[in-house]
Design a protein around this nucleic acid. Structure first.
Lengths: 329, 329
DNA sequence: ATTTCTGAATGAAACGCTTAAAAATGTTGA
DNA sequence: TCAACATTTTTAAGCGTTTCATTCAGAAAT
């Protein structure tokens, strides 16, 4: 690989001049510039990013920490981040934390050592200390935990109320909630939305809360169990994967969806269109969330001011077969 | 951030000594080492990876180029790569190529500039020139195109024959194939397997080949169209997503799966367990493929010899409801 | 007493780039 | 003619490491 020195030698100038041509700053004579460019061409010279990084302390790389890319909520988010940062000529280091504080800490340490220019964090467990003393820009995605960082989330609370209300509107009165892990902030927000809406409807009953831990199998088992003990005619699942679990359980019980039990999920991942019946869901603008977070981070990195620090994106009720009873469909 | 110089000063030694302590090579007196370690502790010193990279020309980073992380086949693959490389203290830069040669070239260029230690490539379009002159280790994943690189694939041809044969075994005689994009190698291998098996069974009919482009919607439409023109009692879809498309089409036509039409997919992504009926599929060891590719790359990078260059992992028939007719289930 | 060897530590060059400061050259106007 | 200034280029220091060559002290060998 040719270095800047080779180019300088071939063009008969000093390395400083080549550097100035490359970076388009400082004076350089038109004629000289041409010579330099020809030399660059001839040698197929590409500046060494690492050397540049060492000097400038900026790597055109960001870190993206997600719990688990194989959770179907994240691929689209990651894709969005990659798409946006790519436009700005940034590159993405992907980290799976499994929500483990230990892994998060390690990754953050490594990312710092590599001089990443920024980090997008999807987590809630991390205590301030680890992150807040970070000197690189951070944007928190999906799960805000600290108000000092810019964040992008969807309206979990509102979405949950919307889902609950929707089940009510189509005639459900025994509405259960499949709840996600209690240490995950968005799961709790959705639970809160459900609870408040149920209270307002005068239907609140804590026995109707079922723990599904955001997993299909656990959700399915929990629903099977719940049906033994309680009457239920509608299920609001905290995420789409659990909604599928619920669907499986209902079908296994020989009941019909939506006639006997209506189901609505949360997230709006592609999966919801693939089941039979297709699942109603509260759709988050997943791609947009990732893109927005990436854009915020880019701005942050380039030192531009943000018009706003916390973004709460709207969610949308998507009604499909799983909640389409007589009166509405 | 403290530098090695700060540590050296505090410990009262030269930077060379600190470096030797850090890298555990060369002579260093026990007593001195202790002093140095104390200084490192005291300053919370972490070596600067970038400086290290510049000197050693190795970054403990690899590039992973996939077509599109939001295609449900890839998250698990990516996760596997990340898991394995993480053990070796490597970090992963994720790149989405959309199968576009242009993007692939750009990414490869950028990765080289960043001194990545290796690249895992999931692509088939790239001509030798771009890649083969690459001086970093490369492992080709899922889609081998050049026999000079180590590669990991699953047995597409065999899997396709297995799937076709399975449909035959449960009684299908008009077996259609939903084919993926013709420029994707594995799609063609699967097609070939289907064709050869059909010929051997004396059932080959080119009219039964339906183009679905690996997409759900396109597959669904194509199946609806095909049913107008031909009699079909079994569908072997080139991937699971298209199998879902086929399922949707069949259901829309008011036919039953598997009684009227049996369906089998390919890949074995989690989705196949979420549909109703659950989909039979040819399951590829997705995680294992990613892990294997990563392990090969690690070996390559560390200069270890590979026992074998090309790995063809076995696939497995998973029979579920969509092909469970009377005689078998 | 001189040489040779070994363990321990250091100095300085190198990795490939950027940039502040210095130097060289050219231009202008009094 | 010369100061004042603008333009162009070079020199050299620095980014934070690693490592080669060297030094040094003391022990062992001659």
């Amino acid at each position: 690989m040719a270095t800047i020195r080779d180019v300088a030698r071939l063009a008969g100038v000093s390395v400083a001049t080549v550097s100035r041509v490359l970076n388009q700053n400082g004076y350089v004579n038109e004629e000289t510039e041409k010579r330099v460019r020809r030399a660059i061409q001839a040698l197929n010279y590409k500046p060494n990013e690492v050397a540049r990084t060492l000097f400038k302390k900026t790597s055109r790389t960001i870190g993206l920490i997600v719990p688990d890319i194989s959770n179907p909520f994240f691929p689209e988010l990651v894709r969005a981040v990659e798409d946006v940062t790519n436009i700005y000529d940034y590159t993405v280091i992907l980290c799976n934390s499994d929500e483990k504080t230990e892994k998060e800490k390690e990754y953050i340490e490594v990312l710092k050592q590599k001089y990443v220019d920024g980090i997008i964090l999807t987590t809630n467990q991390l205590e301030l200390a680890e992150v807040s003393e970070l000197d690189v820009p951070v944007v928190v995605l999906d799960r805000p935990f600290n108000h000092s960082f810019p964040s992008v989330i969807a309206d979990n609370y509102g979405g949950a109320r919307l889902a609950t209300r929707h089940l009510y509107d189509i005639g459900c009165r025994k509405i259960a909630h499949l709840q996600g892990p209690s240490h995950v902030v968005n799961a709790m927000e959705r639970f809160n939305g459900y609870r408040d809406e149920m209270k307002e409807l005068g239907l609140w009953d804590e026995n109707l809360v079922i723990l599904g831990n955001y997993h299909l199998k656990q959700a399915k088992e929990a629903v099977l169990q719940a049906f033994k003990e309680h009457q239920i005619d509608g299920i609001f699942a905290g995420n789409d994967v659990m909604a599928v679990g619920a669907l499986k359980a209902i079908q296994q019980l020989g009941l019909r969806v939506p006639e006997d039990v209506a189901i609505i999920g949360y997230d709006g991942i592609p999966l919801t269109e693939m089941t039979t019946p297709e699942l109603s869901t509260i759709s988050q603008p997943i791609y947009e969330m990732g893109a927005m977070a990436a854009r915020l981070l880019m701005k942050r990195i380039e030192g531009q001011p943000l018009e706003q620090i916390h973004y709460v994106l709207p969610v949308q009720l998507i009604q499909r077969e799983s909640t389409r009873k007589g009166e509405k469909g």
